[in-house]
Write a protein that binds this DNA or RNA. Sequence first.
DNA 1: GCGGATCAC
DNA 2: TATGGTGATCCGC
Length: 878
Amino acid sequence: MDSTKEKSDSAKEKSDNCKDDLLLRMGLNDNKAGMEGLDKEKINKIIMEATKGSRFYGNELKKEKQINQRIENMLQQKAQITSQQLRKAQLQVDRFAMELEQSRDLNSTIVHIDMDAFYAAVEMRDNPELKDRPIAVGSMSMLSTSNYHARRFGVRAAMPGFIAKRLCPQLIIVPPNFDKYQAVSREVKEILTDYDPNFMAMSLDEAYLNITKHLEERKNWPEDKRKYFITAGTSLENDNPGKEVNKLSELGRSISPLLFEDSPPELQSPGNPFQVNSEEPNNPQTHQNSVVFGTSAEEVVKEIRFRVEQKTALTASAGIAPNTMLAKVCSDKNKPNGQYQILPNRQAVMDFIKDLPIRKVSGIGKVTEKMLKALGIITCTELYQQRALLSLLFSETSWHHFLHISLGLGSTHLARDGERKSRSVERTFSEISKAEEQYSLCQELCSELAQDLQKEGLKGRTVTIKLKNVNFEVKTRASTVSAVVSTAEEIFVIAKELLRTEIDADFPHPLRLRLMGVRLSGFPNEEEKKHQQRSIIGFLQPGNQALSATSCILEKTDKDQFLKPAQTSHKKSFFDKKRSERKASPQDTFTCETVNKQSLQTSQSFQVLNKKMSENLEVVEKSHNCQTFTCPVCFREQGSISLEAFNKHVDACLDGPSISGNPKMSSCSHASSAEVNEKENVYGSVSLCEKRGYETHQKNTEIMSVDPVELVETTGKPSNTDDIGVLSNKLSEEECSGPSSKSFNMEHCPQNSCTVSLENEDVGSLRRQESPQPNLYEVISDQVLVCPVCNLEQKTSDLTLFNVHVDVCLNKGIIQELREDKINPCNQPKESTKSTDNLGKVQKTGNKAKRPGLMTKYSASKKTRPNNPRHTLDVFFK
DNA sequence: GCGGATCAC
DNA sequence: TATGGTGATCCGC
């Protein structure tokens, strides 16, 4: 009877914050008279008092309204379904159900292991003072878990600590110690490996095992291979010194008394420490100091739990079933420190499923539960009965999922962890409204993210920022660039721009933020990486005639490794600064940092740059014949000259080192590689380093372009080309470390010519091409690059950063603004002249005719960004 | 590709 | 005083 109470301990309830649902769930916290704890009314009252009127609650109400609207939409749609449609759907769904039934696989034995109140249990184990007391792990702001004692007071995971304290003033909140949990988790996983080397860890305290193979082998195992000695753990000794511990019947409580004493007494059936639901003929045999486990699945799982407890003094619960979906539900059934098995036959599965509330199933969350409840569906049986209707109201993915659940079907093999798809960092803080602080924070997040990315060697193309305002409204903004990025600086260039757009959009009102996050995704898969690899090899292959434009997508140089960790320069973190309330000057708090390094960009920059250039040319073209042009080669403004004159300048720029009207241009080299080599070997290498040291104010840009056709022709000198791929690595590693560094740089950069035409035809052809002409630009700049899109000087010598900036420029469509305001996007946010829009404001949307999806079909609202379109160049310069 | 949402842990 | 962080996926644009 009361064991059903403990079922409610499932992880699912942990994360629910919605008060309505909380109220419902609290019914599971009722206590017997005289017992310590709170009844549900008290719990709900306290929670409501602590919650009501808060911004958080306001947002919860708003979200609830949206869900209700979705439900209303769904019910409307349901009302329009004809009986004929329903019959047709029934046939279709039943056909599919039949197929599923035929493919039902009962041959696998899947185990789900779940450590009981893991973090809390570890803390209790390691601190005897916490024994017998209600504890939770987390902070005043948020708890990640609570022990069973605390749960009697309604203290749950995902509940803010300050509310928990009101529920249970004696509650001890222990700060989390993840390193320790990790170490314990490793110990557990070592055991699991013995039963399934390919087990799937879902988190520190949860894992799936496929023990099918183990069972097969185990059949023939002699007894001593299944025999384990019982050792009393340390926690045991300070519990009940005189207690007899070497009997299995005592294991449950004696070895890990802490948890058990918190458990409802009815779970502690003295003669049966392992909660099992079937009569097992070969229960563990206890001897003097050892125990022998049988060969059945149930015995295996007992053995696992026994070993885990012996090793860690912590208990685990487990579920055994023919598939993962069922095993997961099972592990929850006899929690804590229990196990449950669904025997591998259809009847057993269906019996189990019959009255199972759908909410118990992984994947059915709060919202889905509510929507299905509106259709009268609470149990799996009802889910099955309504299958035809569901197929008409939900997306295919969704109703397929529902059908699987209602038939008790699930995955029978443990999918190997796929490749990571994204990496992110986010942080909650007390309100931050000042733009410069927001930028500064953003920069810090980018640095953190970059560190994480570097550890895993990840580079991606899409940067997403996440903002949550003080009203708990969340929005994300993403930007995809044409080449992978990974360093803090690269990511920040993009993130900053996204942030700036949002700040501008709300101007003159500040963004009142409580959370900010940065994510990188769009990692190239293995195939793409290989392709890039092949491309670079093909590109550099001597005599390669079939040099296609696409083959020029080269691997970006791996310069991060020689980039000084950006963070090391930060003595104090943003938060530290805030905390100490030492206000730095605006320039300090937010500047687009000049990257103190020089990097040679061999590859993708060409693609990016070329694209930008071609688009820039269009810009120029569209802005009539007399304009301020910026040379795409030397990046100097050419003043108001005609296209023809500008073209001549570009040609000249490409043709020779001396450029008319550009006194600051130190070289725009078209020397032979030998010349360059010599020159740089003798002078350049040293001078560049020196320049950075002593002449940092001086602008110095060197540009080389490489026409691939000529490159191929000149590959008779292998030394010129073979090493291009590693060129920047070497260069930057040795950057400024000695005279040799720069010579390397030049040595491998074959000179060449590149003609840039502003004739319409050429511009058009550039534009039309998916991939630009395979020209390879290498820009070496000591100080300043000029963005060919926005025409503004970029305070960076890092070409990749520069390219990212250009990408961002294009993506955000800020060219016009920039040209007008002459505001560098790397600098302080400008005062936007844009009127505030209703960005983020909720608007109703009409019903769509298409088949609904679970998540959005019945969406109650839609956000629009009327004044913040994703401009394309075409739009901009129309 | 983007943005909002849902879900798990 | 005070309601998390990370990753994945789906769906409609």
